[in-house]
Design a protein around this nucleic acid. Structure first.
Lengths: 121, 121
DNA sequence: TTCTAATTCAACCATATTGTTGAATGTAGT
DNA sequence: ACTACATTCAACAATATGGTTGAATTAGAA
């Protein structure tokens, strides 16, 4: 049950790997925005911004509601939660230093027993 | 203090956006591994795996210790924590539904006050 | 119908990414 | 000096990504 959601994670992390898109998400955290509102802060064509928005949409990070002739986007938090959960799987490694030490020592033992066992004591 | 770490996040999220690399991190969570050990499960050349490892290394997600003639890699948790923190910034959106409702309402008000104020009451 | 606005589509270009293969590097053992 | 091993480097190819511009779409307003 560890890596079943691989394809989702690919698109989610890929979408997050671009500063423009992360910035768009931050704006959307303050409330819904139209495509042109999302595009406005960036020094790029509307078509380019539209592509970024589509990447976010394909990753499931935002949803779009076609309202009148404008497309209103809003944050969809569940993929963020999925990514957050995946990272949380590693939480012990940065919070509980004893845990990582324990793992490293356990691994040392294993390797020592496996390869050469002449140097101990 | 919200988006100061942008360049790091670019490389971190980009590195995480590939299933091969995430899989390598999962193996490294069990203990250190050499380059060839990391490459072994994958149906690709050693050179290709070496490139993946370099991507992880450049993102700071792993560190490498040249031990004898083998390169031993181990997990470096801090960038994972950075990414986790960034995502945690959105935690309210998937845990506390009241919060998101609050935000949306606040935004509604703001927008209503800003554009046309003829429809209220 | 025609005008205008918001957005996408299509074609294109430059660069990045991911993979390949074969040669090069560095180091220990013989 | 030679061999064997672990890894990287270099050159190349295929595909993906991120940007551009100009035309197409869509739908209300005049």
């Amino acid at each position: 049950m560890v890596e079943l959601e691989t394809p989702q994670l690919n698109s989610i992390f890929h979408a997050l790997g671009d500063a423009t898109r992360r910035s768009m998400l931050q704006v959307l955290a303050e409330g819904e925005r139209t495509v042109s509102q999302l595009a406005e802060p960036f020094d790029m064509s509307l078509a380019a911004a539209s592509k970024h928005i589509k990447v976010l949409e394909n990753a499931g990070l935002i949803r779009r509601e076609v309202r009148w002739r404008t497309h209103v986007c809003h944050l969809e938090p569940s993929p963020l939660a999925t990514a957050h959960d995946w990272l949380g799987h590693y939480e012990n490694f940065w919070t509980n230093r004893l845990d990582i030490l324990d793992r490293l020592l356990r691994d040392e033992d294993e390797r020592a027993a496996n390869s050469k066992k002449g140097n101990d004591k």
